[in-house]
């Protein structure tokens, strides 16, 4: 007989369940019978859809993590945050300037930051969120873009912020402004964009689009990745 799976007790949205030790929060939720329609995505820690807050037994700290990456522990209390209500202004990047005034216009709430660092503490990607918000406040968009690069927009920073800032949307704008106006132009990229515009790859893209899933998957995993 197979060795018996050790079970541990966890609280899922306030209710007690027994789940297998070593499960991720996501596995625990599904084991307990929750059908995940929201708050789930790639299951590999990339997409940021499964933001979760939890407390470990005996610890006062409220922690944030991705359900697909965080392993449950005995007595853990867990609540998923399937979506974060966020301030998201519509803008046309072509009309904007890469400076602090653009943020005063589109995201004035960023100036309410009190440097409490709650955002950084909540970030499952270990990004120094407060530092990029501060970089935005002092108009250093290159730095903000650099620090926030690994953001997967899970929204936990915004949920914890006492100043009600939506950090990740600020970061997205900072990276867009940086990419469009501040980053050093790459001649290779310009060339490739021209090629795309001129239709050089149209045939290839059409083929890929029409390809059956199995075949596409095969090509995908066989692709060459050059790391130079």
């Amino acid at each position: 007989m197979a060795e018996k799976q050790k079970m541990i007790k966890v609280y899922l949205t306030g209710e007690l369940f027994e789940v297998p030790e070593g499960s991720t929060i996501m596995m625990a939720l599904e084991y307990a019978g929750f059908q995940l329609k929201q708050g789930v995505g790639c299951r590999e820690g990339y997409c940021g859809a499964c933001a979760t807050v939890y407390r470990e037994k005996g610890d006062y700290k409220l922690k944030g993590g991705l359900a697909c990456q965080t392993v449950v522990s005995e007595g853990m209390a867990i609540t998923q945050i399937p979506s974060v209500p966020a301030e998201k202004p519509i803008y046309d990047l072509n009309d904007l300037t890469p400076d602090v005034g653009t943020f005063t216009k589109l995201f004035p709430s960023v100036f309410r930051c009190v440097s409490c660092n709650s955002c950084t503490k909540a970030c499952p990607q270990d990004i120094e969120v407060m530092d990029y918000i501060q970089a935005i406040i002092r108009g250093d968009l290159a730095k903000a873009a650099d620090i926030s690069f690994d953001c997967i927009r899970c929204g936990l920073c915004a949920m914890r912020c006492p100043a009600e800032i939506v950090q990740y949307n600020n970061a997205t704008l900072a990276r867009r402004l940086y990419g469009k106006y501040l980053a050093k132009k790459s001649p290779e990229l310009e060339k490739r964009l021209e090629e795309i515009k001129s239709g050089k790859y149209d045939k290839e893209i059409k083929e890929l689009k029409e390809m059956p899933h199995d075949e596409l998957s095969k090509i995908y995993y066989k692709r060459e990745i050059k790391i130079s």
Partner: peptide, 11 residues
Amino acid sequence: EALKLPTIAVV
């Protein structure tokens, strides 16, 4: 005004 105001005033 957003483009004119100094950060110090806004904060």
